[in-house]
Structures are given as C-alpha cells and as structure tokens.
Design a protein around this nucleic acid. Structure first.
Lengths: 196, 196
DNA sequence: TTTAATATTAGACCAGTCGTCTAGAACTTT
DNA sequence: AAAGTTCTAGACGACTGGTCTAATATTAAA
C-alpha cells in the first residue's frame, strides 16, 4: 500500500519532531522536508494539522500498548518484576533520547488539554487505560503476595501513572535519571515489595 | 516608578497567556494587544522574547516563593498542616482557573527544557529550591513526631515535588481534582501522618 | 486505446511570527 | 526654557504558518 506508506511515514517523522518540540512549535514544513514529502501531499492524507495530530496520538498509543503488553503483561515474570521492567523500559527510552523526548502523551496533555477538548478527551482516555493496566498488574502482585494486601490497586495504579509522568518531567528538566530511579524505589517501598 | 509599572504589566499579562498557551504559541502581538502596550515599548524593556520569558519565570518564582513561605513556612501550623495547606493552595488555583493553567514552571519545563539550556537550568534551580523547601517541612514534621522517623526527607521532598507535578498534569487532562486529592492522601499515608 | 475516475503533487496565498527601526512624545533635570 | 533622557508609536522586513485550488500522475473502465 503506497498510500499507507507515505501516510505512516509522515506520522513517524512527525511524532518524532512533536515529541521533541511540541505540537504547536512543529511546523508542517519541518515535518515534510524531513520526511521528503511535498507539502501538497499533506492535505491529501490529513484533513488538517489537528487531524494529523490525532493520528500521531493514535499511532503512539498503539505502539505504547504493545510495549505495555511486553512488560506489564509479561506473564513469564513475577508481577512486581513486570512493573519494574515497564519502568526500566521508560528509563532506557529517556537515556537513548538524551532527555529530549519524554512521553508524547504527557507532553501533548500539558500542551493541548486546555486548548482542544478533542485532544484532551482522547489523551484522557489513554491515560485512563494505562492506569488500569498498572492497577491490573498490582492486583496480580497482590494475589501472589508480592505486595501488601492493604494497597488499593486502582488508586495506586493512578498514583503511579501520574507520579511517573511527574518524574519524567523532573528528569527532563534536571537532565538526570535520578528522579526516575527515586520514583521506582519509593513506589516499591510503599508497595512493600522488598528487593530479593 | 512608571518604568516598572509598564514592564511589570507586560510580565503579568504575558505570564497569564504563557501559562495557558505555552511560550512558543504565545505571540508578542497577542501579549501586547492584551496589555494595551505598543510593540515599540516591548523592546525597550526586554532584549528579546527569550529575555522576556526569563523575566516571566523570575517573577513567577518570586511570587511562588512568597506563597511557599505562607504555607510550608507557616510556623503557626503544625508541619504536616503546612504541607497540607501548600497542596490545598495549588488545588484552589487549579479550581479557579478551571484547569487551564497548572504550574508555569512545570509547563515551561516540559516545553523548553530540551530547547534552551538557559531556560532549563533556571527551571531546574527553581525545582531544586522547591524540593528543599518541602524537605525542610518534612524534617520539621519528623522532629515533632508527626511523621515516621524512617522517611528520608530529602528524597521524599523531591518525590513529592515531581509527583505533584504529575498530579497537576493528570488533573488538567482529566479536568478533575481527583488526581490531586488522591496524591495528597497517598503521600500523607506514606508519611504515616494519620488524620486527626 | 481512449476515456473516466482517482490519487497525488506543486506551489500560490494570506495571515501571522519576531524583531528592527525611525520618529516623535513625554517626562526630568538643569 | 532648554537639554537630555526615557518611553511610545506603529510601519516594515524577512520569514514561517496552515490551507486550498488547480494541475498532474496514476489507475481502472469501456
């Protein structure tokens, strides 16, 4: 499919630039010249820049879901190790992009939540889904007695998600992995998951 | 001083618009028309838009420091209540702006950390300062036996700061106070500060 | 093969960006 | 009243932004 090739190519390059510079500050020209796609084509594949932005989010969410399945959903690991591997995965990302990207959903949430209800609602749904996935992993950890029984897994899932977003921000501003490692330690301690 | 009046007025209006729309997406024209200040004046008071941005940060940091002194540093309250009043203060802000603003330093950190070392370093310093202030309050709480003795106050101070930033983001995207209230509950529980 | 329909591209278009610059107005100070 | 400084006015340039129409390339049908 040539069509989807070009479309997907624009999305891939666009997601990269948007992750770094934000949605508003990433011009179509920059994306298209980088992708080597003529400007006229853009409006063949997307209704508008906003429409394109939503497509970028969709693609990112799908890829992220796949990664969550490989980590948080990896049944060959103990539940707590699933959580650990999920967090470590983000840490590796941060390292490999030299603190320039962070989490696309978080970045766009900050930038667009108050500017576009459409974006806000979609991003909110994605966050909610992530919270549930973390909560689900915590539930499993509770069932195997890996963590304390008095933890409210739903609340804690949401707490971990938002806390992690904050830690990513702090790490970016500090250009240091410390906030991420600290977060992992604090959370595991709070869960009562002792290192073995 | 007329000079400082106009300058400060531009900063006030600018801070407001930047909080909502971000630095890159806030045009000088928009700021100046809103502030009813002619463009010519702007470059009398500021070297460039970046220079202006740093001035906005400076002003915000000063005001925020004052607020921290009134809450986290309020010696007429018990240490844990100082922390509580600090968090509640942010919650009120979020309510009163209808989730449109959040924390200017956090917002700019997300947007500018990877784009300008100058901004990044200044924002990092401000965050570090805030972490210390929280840690200091925790230390006081420990000395009055209000919270557990085994809490590493410095680590916890940093953890609370970044977690709170994440909770602000989550609240904004969700248009709900829940993430903020949840964060408060979770932290107080973790500190071992029981409600009385 | 010629025609019709679709998929893709080229680039004009205008509104908006930041920042510059020349004038002149409005204060101060002498 | 004069001189000097501070501040304002807003046109302007060079550029970038997203969008759209008109033309081209490609495919399918007749």
């Amino acid at each position: 499919m040539k069509k989807n090739d070009t479309r997907q190519h624009i999305i891939t390059i666009g997601a990269d630039l948007i992750s770094i510079h934000g949605f508003g500050s990433t011009g179509l020209n920059k994306i298209l010249s980088e992708a080597q796609v003529p400007k006229g084509s853009f409006y063949h594949y997307f209704k508008s820049k906003n429409d394109f932005g939503l497509a970028v989010i969709e693609t990112y969410a799908e890829e992220y879901e796949a990664r969550m399945n490989e980590t948080l959903g990896n049944e060959s690991l103990q539940p707590v190790d699933r959580l650990r591997s999920y967090l470590r995965c983000s840490v590796e990302d941060m390292k490999s992009c030299d603190f320039s990207r962070g989490c696309l959903i978080g970045n766009l949430g900050q930038e667009l939540a108050s500017q576009s209800p459409l974006f806000r609602e979609r991003l909110d749904d994605i966050f909610s889904d992530w919270e549930l996935r973390i909560a689900h992993c915590l539930k499993a950890a509770q069932e195997t007695q890996q963590i304390k029984q008095d933890v409210d897994t739903e609340q804690m899932g949401a707490f971990i998600l938002s806390g992690w977003q904050g830690a990513l921000l702090r790490a970016k501003v500090q250009r240091s992995m410390l906030p991420l490692l600290r977060f992992e330690n604090m959370i595991l301690k709070q869960l009562g998951a002792v290192d073995q």
